[in-house]
Design a binder for these strands. Sequence first.
DNA 1: CAAGGGCTAGACCAATCGGTCTAATGCCGA
DNA 2: TCGGCATTAGACCGATTGGTCTAGCCCTTG
Lengths: 182, 182
Amino acid sequence: METKALPTKDRLILSAATLFRTRGYHGVGLADLLAEAKAPKGSLYHHFPNGKSDLAMAAATWASDEMLRLIATSFDGADTFRDGATTLCYKLAKLFDITGWDTCPIAATLFEGPDNQQFRSHASHIYEGWIAEVRDHAERLGLNETEAKAKSEHLFMLIQGGWTLARARRDSEVIREMTAML
Amino acid sequence: METKALPTKDRLILSAATLFRTRGYHGVGLADLLAEAKAPKGSLYHHFPNGKSDLAMAAATWASDEMLRLIATSFDGADTFRDGATTLCYKLAKLFDITGWDTCPIAATLFEGPDNQQFRSHASHIYEGWIAEVRDHAERLGLNETEAKAKSEHLFMLIQGGWTLARARRDSEVIREMTAML
DNA sequence: CAAGGGCTAGACCAATCGGTCTAATGCCGA
DNA sequence: TCGGCATTAGACCGATTGGTCTAGCCCTTG
């Protein structure tokens, strides 16, 4: 990773997002985290007073923002909902090939954390944000409220499940194929 | 858990399946595991010479067998693929409410393990087994080979993704609603 | 230049991690 | 009743865990 130029706090967030995504919250130790970010322990607890859990929340937020941006760029130039959704799937398939077969960053980071209440509600909030973003585009592209809700949730489930299957197979093909099911 | 009457080995597998499913492989320590199973450490390493990782493999296999049984009972009495798939979704929604909002046991147990190669290939094998089971029923119920493959993979993705969304919301409703998307 | 604070640096800590090993227990057929 | 094996029991181990704390660097401001 060429994470040298970034400020320490950002390096920590980026490293955390990467490592949690591949090995899960409990699978990553502070030692790994600090080595990846090339930061000493003091910096971690300066920027994130509650340590690992604070960092995990920040990493999840960062990953969510990336996803929201990906959704936006996929739907912005689309003429129909299906077009936008298809573009999103292809972008995700490419991302899958680049990053290399890891999990949904939110699930990996937040669904096993120690403080259930805080972590879980953050995960829920993030997922609903993705769905809402897709739903807004759906309505803008002509679907009525009911259709938009159903389609956006459907797409979420397909992506989430398709990503898991792709991971097991180490092959992004299924993510591309699933555009036929929209 | 009324796991008293079972032999030690089965108690260990059952406890492992439960705990890994809720907290993930790395989120569960041997101490928790042994306390849940009411077994001493010696028994663990007697029945599972490679310790935690052996136990995780066995727990995943056990969970997979449960899932295969659920698929079979859902489709056995069905007249159409859609009927069978709908029944499966409703059974899963009920299971979700009973077990209480945990993850896919396979993903939680095998997708973060230390020995990537062995764990990942086992996960892949299990998932393909589920899909194959559904595909066989689909063909038996009249779908051609291409349709059967597409439908079975589609159902897998919906369930996997729907379960995740249900978990975030702590509400199984979305699993039931997704029968409209078949 | 001096002083202050944001940030870095890593030694240090108790607790827990997964795993090994020896001793004793319980149960079996001979 | 005895020998022998499968299993249980848990003390013990070094390594690693997440977290705390003090010292000092370095950059900015007066």
